[in-house]
C-alpha cells in the first residue's frame, strides 16, 4: 500500500511541478521493460492470482519470491541511470537479503504484529507460518529473526486507521519510486519520452 501511494504521489508531484513550471511532464522510459513483466510473473502466480497461488507449496512460493526479486534487481541494474533507481534497488536488496536469510519469506515480528493486528485475528495466526497464502510475510518472534532490523518491524502511527507493517527496504523502494517519477523526466531527451500536458 505504501508503495502504491508512493507511485501515485510521485506521479502527481512530478506532473504538478511540470504544470507549475508551465512545462510538459515527461515520464521516465525504462530499458528492457519486458523484464519487469517476466520478473513479476512468478510472484503474480504464487501470491496474487487466486486461481494459481494455492497450487504452490511454501517452498515453491519462496523460490518464486526470491527468483522474482533477483530478476527485478537485474531490471533495476539495467535501468540504474534513472534517478531514484539506485535507491529503489537498495531497498529491494534489503528486502531480498532479509527474505533470503529467513527461509525465503519476509519475517513479521510477533511483537510488531501485536501492535496492529486485532487479538481475534492474532488468535488465528500460527508462529512460524505464513500470514496467508497471499502474503510474503511469516510470523516469527523477533529474537528468532535473522537481520531483524531489515524485517517488517515498522507500523504507521495510530492516527491512520489503515495500519500495516513495513520494512526499511520498503521505505527506500517507496522513496526511489517517488524520486523516479519526480526527477525521471530529466533522464532522457524529450524525443524519447512520453508526456502528459
Amino acid at each position: 500500500m505504501i508503495l502504491l501511494v508512493a507511485v501515485l504521489v510521485g506521479g502527481l508531484t512530478g506532473w504538478g511541478i511540470a504544470k507549475w513550471q508551465r512545462q510538459t511532464w515527461h515520464s521516465p522510459i525504462f530499458r528492457f521493460p519486458f523484464l519487469v513483466v517476466i520478473g513479476f510473473l512468478p510472484q503474480f502466480c504464487a501470491f496474487y492470482f487466486p486461481l494459481t497461488r494455492h497450487l504452490f507449496s511454501d517452498s515453491q512460493t519462496s523460490l518464486c519470491l526470491i527468483l522474482s526479486q533477483i530478476m527485478l534487481l537485474i531490471f533495476g541494474w539495467l535501468n540504474r541511470s534513472l534517478p531514484g533507481m539506485i535507491i529503489l534497488m537498495f531497498g529491494l536488496g534489503c528486502n531480498l537479503t532479509v527474505i533470503f536469510a529467513n527461509n525465503g519469506f519476509m519475517p513479521l515480528p510477533l511483537e510488531t504484529a501485536n501492535l496492529f493486528v486485532s487479538q481475534e485475528v492474532m488468535g488465528n495466526l500460527i508462529l512460524g507460518e505464513r500470514i496467508s497464502s497471499a502474503s510474503k510475510d511469516i510470523l516469527i518472534p523477533e529474537a528468532s529473526i535473522h537481520l531483524p532490523w531489515l524485517a517488517d518491524r515498522f507500523v504507521f502511527p495510530d492516527l491512520f486507521s489503515y495500519q500495516f507493517a513495513y520494512s526499511i527496504g520498503d521505505v527506500f523502494i517507496a522513496f526511489g519510486a517517488f524520486w523516479l517519477l519526480v526527477k525521471g523526466q530529466m533522464a532522457h531527451p524529450v524525443l524519447e519520452t512520453g508526456d502528459l500536458s
Binding site: 522510459i29 513483466v37 527485478l72 527474505i99 489503515y162 500495516f164 513495513y166
Partner: peptide
C-alpha cells in the same frame, strides 16, 4: 500509452520489490 505502460511497469516493480503486510486488511484495530 507510453505513460500508462511506464506506470504499469513501475507498479509491478514496486509491488514485486516490496514486502509490506496489512494482514489482508482484516487486522485493522
Amino acid at each position: 500509452l507510453q505513460v500508462i505502460w511506464m506506470f504499469l511497469a513501475l507498479t509491478m516493480l514496486v509491488i514485486g520489490a516490496g514486502a509490506s503486510e496489512d494482514v489482508g486488511g482484516i487486522g485493522i484495530r
